[in-house]
Amino acid sequence: MTATIIITGANGSVAIPAVNHLLTKYPDYTAVLTVRNTENTDPNTKKLHETIAKFPNAQTSIRQLDLADLSAVHNFANTIATEISEKKLPPLASIVCNAYYWNLNGDSELTADGIEKTIQVNHISHVAIVLRLLGSFRPEGGRIILFTSNAHFPGKNSLEKYPPAIAVDLDALLHTTPFSDKLAGGMHIYANSKLAILMWGYALNRHLEKDEKLRNITAIIIDPGNLTDSRALRTNTPLFLRVVQRLVLQPLRPLIRLTDPSYRTAADAGIDVVDLATNNVHPGERGYLLTLKKEPSSPDSYNEDTQEKLWVKSAEWAKITKEDTAISII
């Protein structure tokens, strides 16, 4: 049975090789690929178009989606759900929540929805997509791929100055925070978003397992590794980080990998993500992975009380009501 895989941020460093791997190895799938700008005037979207063009028989569509606009996110999810119900698209096999945002160069920003941009793009908008589309998966289930980072784990990321932590007042995540050190502040906000994604993912799995109709949907929360060629290191980052990538991380990656194999290419990560999304790797399993390895996440991430509070709050932030989703959000 054919099925659909959604990939957000589909013109990104991980996503383009992921799309190439999907269309090469799993050609029966339909790919719905979201980007902010669908035109070839965007050089990254141009690369995506060129990748797809190598597979003239592939079932693909590139959709415009700005995750910094919740109304656009809801409209996108509703459109996909309608197309599946009308059999214009096959049912879902996977949602790959790949898109991200960070700003390590300037002040934190609010979206038009009045939400801190990093937490909205990385977490809240993906929550809206996932919760709205749970009822659109194929009967045999499927996979949700969420992305975390070693930044979620205090002491693991070399750019950390302020350790990640989810405050008792969860709404604090939505607010901009002034930092004199823009790099440290931006990294802290990004790390908190990655911790929130991970904890919400744990709660999502728990709620899916309890639901008789949805228990065959599994969520993997993956840290794809330290991607030395990622465009992320050149986007909204200070000059020194771009220099380190070009002069240290890229040329010395083979040596660095001798002590830390999580340093790898975006293409390696893209292959893993697609093999997970199609349930060909770790079939039926749930939870956190570092690359493809089962490793413990941070001690704070296992706090089930905070996970459940994030579960409820995230739906609220995403403007999801009980009528919008096939799962209980209370």
Rank of each mutant, 00 (worst) to 15 (best):
G142Q: 07
F137S: 11
N150Q: 13
I129L: 15
N157D: 14
N157I: 04
E140Y: 02
S158A: 10
P163E: 03
F147I: 14
E116P: 12
H126T: 02
T177K: 13
E160P: 12
I144A: 06
L174M: 12
S136C: 05
G142R: 01
V121S: 07
G141Q: 04
N150C: 11
L174R: 13
I144F: 00
A167Y: 02
I124W: 03
A151I: 02
S149Y: 01
G135S: 12
I119R: 06
N122I: 01
G135C: 06
Y162R: 04
I144R: 02
D169H: 04
R143A: 04
T148G: 08
R132Y: 04
H175Y: 06
V168M: 04
F153P: 01
S158L: 13
P163A: 13
G114Q: 08
A165C: 10
A167M: 13
F137N: 01
H126W: 07
R143M: 10
G135N: 12
L159S: 04
I166A: 11
L174V: 07
I124R: 10
V130D: 07
D171S: 13
T148E: 06
D171R: 02
A167C: 11
D113I: 02
D169C: 01
R143D: 08
F147M: 15
H152A: 10
D171I: 09
I115G: 02
D169S: 13
K156G: 01
V130K: 11
D113V: 00
L134E: 00
L173A: 14
H175V: 10
T111A: 11
I115V: 14
G142H: 03
K156R: 15
D169I: 05
K161A: 14
E109V: 07
E116Y: 04
Y162W: 08
A172C: 10
L134G: 09
G114I: 09
V127S: 10
L173S: 12
T177I: 13
G142T: 06
L110T: 03
G135M: 03
F147D: 00
L173V: 00
A167E: 15
P139E: 09
G141S: 05
V130L: 09
V130F: 08
H152R: 13
D169E: 15
H152F: 08
T177L: 02
E140M: 09
E109A: 13
I129W: 10
L159H: 01
V130P: 00
N150L: 11
L131D: 06
G114L: 12
S158M: 13
D171T: 05
P163G: 07
I115S: 04
T177S: 06
D113Q: 03
F153D: 09
L173W: 00
N157P: 04
H175M: 14
G135E: 04
V168I: 11
I115L: 07
A128R: 07
T148P: 06
P154A: 14
D171F: 04
T111I: 03
E116S: 07
I166S: 03
V121T: 10
Y162T: 15
V130E: 05
S125E: 10
L131T: 11
R143K: 15
L133R: 05
L173C: 12
V168Y: 03
V121P: 13
V130W: 02
A165M: 10
A165N: 14
I119F: 05
I115F: 00
L131A: 14
F137L: 09
E160M: 12
A112C: 08
V121G: 11
G141C: 05
P164F: 01
N150P: 12
K161L: 12
E140V: 12
E116V: 08
L110G: 02
T148H: 02
R138F: 07
S125D: 05
